[in-house]
């Protein structure tokens, strides 16, 4: 059976670090809780004045291509998957899409397919899902999935607008900027393979989180019903993972690591403890919230890159990716990570 794999990944994190302490101390309305303790986010990366979604994406792509066997003109498809589409300050681009400008900048073949995806924090894994489908069907051979996520503008708005100790914009204080890219092609052996990936949208809860321009300030804001999202996920994740275990005949011991979507360390650990009965325990939970915060659509790749660079995730390891996003999207992917172009 044909399967796809991650051939190479590239992650770019802006140099500037901003601590949670410095953000909270600048706020007029203080949260009712210790944000750093609750979420585990101590610091996050912050774009410079010259960085935007296009530059973050390009920096990640350059690293990805540098470690890949492919050149830009070998790539059949480029999919841009960020939530934000800012170029040149807070200028959002609807047409042409970012994938079109990235394709142009990279000098890709004219007949290479490009399109953008919007699917909240599941953006990159939606791109991975689509590339996996196109590789399996034989329609395409090589694809580049990228996100240049310039998400801290929502933090800037939250800092101006939070006026309630349980404000819907508190989650906006946990995010960080980043770029991530992955090149996918056909798997040639079981040591490097996307074993399975399934994503579902629980649309009943699609209105629990909105990202949109603010109506109080020139900028973009995110309004999150964090408690409702947490309760919805906690109630469903154990049976969801239990059904995966049955469908794919896997359990926690088949994986060396789990990379959950990076929301809050406490929430992640609570959720995984509850899944112990239906899925079993996974030896190692990968969290990099302390350094990078929630990088939204890129989170799994930022963590994967970080953990491989530290030698914690090694080539040949099985990693369970748990996907969670507004929509509400729940998903799981089993990935046997290969050498990924030299990261080990």
């Amino acid at each position: 059976m044909i399967a796809s794999r991650f051939e190479s990944i590239g992650v770019y994190l802006p140099e500037k670090e901003v601590t949670t302490q410095s953000l909270v101390s600048s706020m007029e309305t203080q949260p009712m809780f210790d944000l750093e303790k609750l979420t585990g986010v101590k610091s996050r990366r912050w774009r410079s004045d010259s960085e935007d979604c296009h530059t973050l994406a390009m920096s990640a792509i350059e690293r990805c291509l540098h470690q890949s066997h492919y050149r830009a003109d070998d790539i059949d498809v480029i999919v841009c998957t960020s939530i934000t589409r800012f170029t040149g300050g807070l200028r959002f681009a609807l047409e042409p899409g970012l994938s079109a400008t990235l394709k142009n900048t990279l000098g890709m073949r004219r007949n290479a397919l490009n399109f953008d995806i919007t699917n909240a924090c599941a953006g990159m894994f939606t791109g991975v899902y689509l590339m996996d489908q196109m590789i399996k069907s034989g329609a395409e051979k090589t694809g580049l999935v990228v996100s240049g996520e310039c998400i801290t503008p929502i933090t800037e708005t939250a800092l101006k607008e939070i006026n309630n100790p349980i404000d819907e914009q508190f989650a906006s204080l946990t995010v960080g900027d980043s770029g991530a890219a992955v090149i996918m092609d056909r798997s040639v052996n079981e040591h490097s393979r996307l074993n399975f990936l399934e994503l579902f949208t629980l649309a009943e809860f699609s209105e629990f989180c909105f990202g949109m321009p603010s109506n109080k300030n020139p900028g973009v804001a995110m309004y999150t019903k964090a408690m409702e999202i947490h309760a919805t996920v906690i109630q469903r994740l154990p049976s969801f993972l239990g059904q995966f275990a049955e469908r794919y005949q896997v359990s926690g011991i088949d994986f060396q690591h789990v990379i959950p979507h990076q929301t809050s360390e406490r929430a992640i650990r609570t959720a995984l403890e509850l899944c112990s009965e239906t899925f079993g325990d996974i030896p190692h939970i990968c969290v990099s919230l302390d350094k990078f915060g929630n990088t939204s659509s890129t989170s799994h790749f930022v963590v994967l890159d970080d953990q491989m660079r530290q030698g914690i995730i090694k080539p040949g390891d099985n990693v369970l990716m748990l996907i969670l996003a507004s929509g509400i999207i729940l998903g799981a992917a089993s990935v046997t990570v290969g050498n990924l172009g030299g990261i080990n």
Binding site: A120, A203, E204, S206, F210, M212, M222
Partner: peptide
């Protein structure tokens, strides 16, 4: 709107796959 996907909001209006079943994906 930048988040969630418009598709998820349309899905809710169409009323398909609204919630996950405890026993069947």
């Amino acid at each position: 709107i930048m988040e969630p996907s418009v598709a998820s909001l349309v899905q809710k209006k169409i009323q398909i796959g609204l919630d996950i079943s405890a026993s069947n994906l």
